[in-house]
Design a protein around this nucleic acid. Structure first.
Lengths: 347, 347
DNA sequence: CTGAAAGCGCTTACAG
DNA sequence: CTGAAAGCGCTTACAG
């Protein structure tokens, strides 16, 4: 039956394609009668205008991409964090009649698709200043919103959490429970990156409490589930005298708790654990996880807003950087340091 | 600086646009020398051909959409299952130079975007024969692959799990551990749907073992995390004498275990629990979850394959229905029915 | 208020 | 082996 085009509509409605187009775009140059007639024909013929043709004219695709760098070769990450985020983006995009392409990229990626598809914008997750991906994206000259990237260029649009405060809150909570030997599972700490900021918050809390900083307490292992799991051995090393661990992701915290459990160490009785993200399932873990909470889906929403601001060049937010608040969600994986602890570790 | 077009390339290379196009598409009608020259200019000018223009000509967009119906109003589901699935699709699509649009739809959705964007195909998750969404999609006349939908029309391309066997394996495992009162948390059971198939497997296992079917054991609550959590009360009702529960999703199983825990019921000592999906974190739960395993990401991959088969009209698979195997992953959430159980429940 | 025409950037018969 | 030209389905000055 072939696709119905604007020409078909024009013929059937006895008007020119110009007029149909004007009706389509509510240009206001058309008489009410004509509008009615054309609309009816459009309805009858189930006409929907070709996006390709429009894009070709307007150099706009109404298409944005969420770009997520791979960790593992060729496969995106398990962490449900990304799913929540993408859901937020999808929701935000839908409200603005935009479609979202999901894209995993590695360092080989040429990003030619951005030009090819005339993408309206990019939402880039988890890159950093030294990343080759970051450099390529910059040279693209396309509207971008960077998430969790702490880029120094003030002209870039960015959205991130108040990571320093997150690091501070989690640490402070543990300190208030009497913990003094607080380990950190950070993931790779890059100058000015997310982990770095959280680490700074940790340092501030420790210093405020007059607690010494011990590099032995900091583990830069990946904060994946398996990474947390594997860290359990280190954490329980008696010489470290660790009574609490702050893991910079919920999936990592889950792995750690599992690992500790298998080593016969109970959470929170023997070791307290704090996570980061507040994934949907943390409330259902055993024990439920004390964690630093963020509204991940909301971030996705705001990312779309910020992208549109940039495209339309009218700032809805005060600045090009949007910092979202975090809060501490206290659950059952943290407890006061137990008096018998030191004895246990003594032998 | 303005986008470089094929015209610019032609001019700079001293050839016609036809020739550039021929080089671009490896038509074989061009002399090696010309090819070399044109390729160099393309490189120099960083030319990448406009997808819009191509799409307009070819009526192909190299764009597919993953369509996921909302559960909650306006927001997609938390279940990481979808994330795994979408990752699989993204991976499959990438290998075939396709891009993936992610789209949440409700029953109001007009699906006009399919025509507007000349989508090459759709991967539709979790619909069913009576669904208005299903009907709309059919009338679209676009290549589709349906997942988990059990549609009777033999002309449709479908991919699903061996759900009946999944239901059978999980139930049989519990029976082999001595359980006789095995409850089911199914989610809504629709004639011929996923839950229905799994339920059939349950019935087969029960019957084989000579165990009576008791409708009181079947709960059609949603198998979301919270759904599982809320079912705990019912499960522990002493009169039901339930010693094992088979939950048709891992997230639901997690919720249930949490709910049971809060009621003082221990898993697997008091009640055994089997899940379904084998999400990445089930190995890290406490207790780790016995569950019916499927390769979710692989499904996404195959969905893309199947879609391409349909587009190119060459069957790579024997049939239009691909059924993927499931297996039982035994972990720590199931145990032999305990002898003290009946006594406990007696009071 | 309406329409004829140019043009967006490609590809593909067609001619040479 | 190469090129001039038509056409994909729109939108937008421009003219009336």
């Amino acid at each position: 039956m072939g696709k119905v085009t604007i020409k078909d509509v024009a013929r059937r409605a006895n008007v020119s394609v110009t007029t149909v187009s004007n009706v389509l775009n509510n240009s206001g140059r058309t008489s009410p009668d004509t509008i009615r007639k054309v609309r009816q024909v459009i309805e009858e013929m189930e006409f929907s205008p070709s996006a390709s043709a429009r894009n070709l004219r307007d150099k706009k695709s109404h298409l944005i991409a969420v770009v997520v760098p791979f960790l593992e070769k060729g496969r995106l990450q398990d962490n449900p964090f990304y799913w929540h985020l993408v859901l937020g983006v999808e929701e935000g995009a839908r409200n603005h009649r935009l479609h979202v392409i999901l894209l995993g990229v590695d360092e080989e990626e040429s990003f030619s698709f951005v030009q090819e598809r005339h993408l309206d914008g990019l939402i880039v997750v988890g890159t950093y200043e030294q990343s080759p991906i970051f450099k390529k994206i910059l040279s693209l000259d396309v509207p971008c919103v960077f998430m969790d990237s702490y880029l120094s260029d003030p002209n870039l649009y960015q959205i991130y959490l108040d990571d320093e405060v997150g690091g501070y809150l989690g640490t402070k909570h543990l300190i208030s429970l009497g913990h003094r030997r607080i380990a950190l599972l950070t993931g790779k700490i890059l100058e000015g990156g997310v982990s770095h900021m959280r680490w700074l918050g940790y340092c501030r809390a420790m210093e405020e409490a007059g607690l010494p900083y011990d590099p032995d307490l900091i583990r830069e292992e990946p904060v994946s589930t398996i990474g947390g799991y594997q860290a359990a051995q280190y954490i329980t090393d008696a010489r470290k005298q660790i009574t609490a661990v702050f893991v910079f992701s919920d999936v990592g915290a889950m792995g750690l708790i599992k690992g500790l459990h298998e080593l016969g160490v109970q959470v929170p009785r023997d070791v307290s654990v704090v996570g980061f993200d507040d994934l949907f399932y943390t409330d259902y873990m055993l024990p439920s996880l004390t964690t630093v909470k963020q509204d991940i889906a909301e971030r996705g929403n705001i990312a779309v807003q910020l992208l549109l601001d940039q495209i339309s060049e009218e700032l809805r937010y005060d600045s090009r950087k949007v910092v979202l608040p975090v809060s501490l969600k206290v659950r059952q994986s943290t407890a006061p340091v137990s008096p018998h602890h030191d004895e246990n570790r003594a032998d």
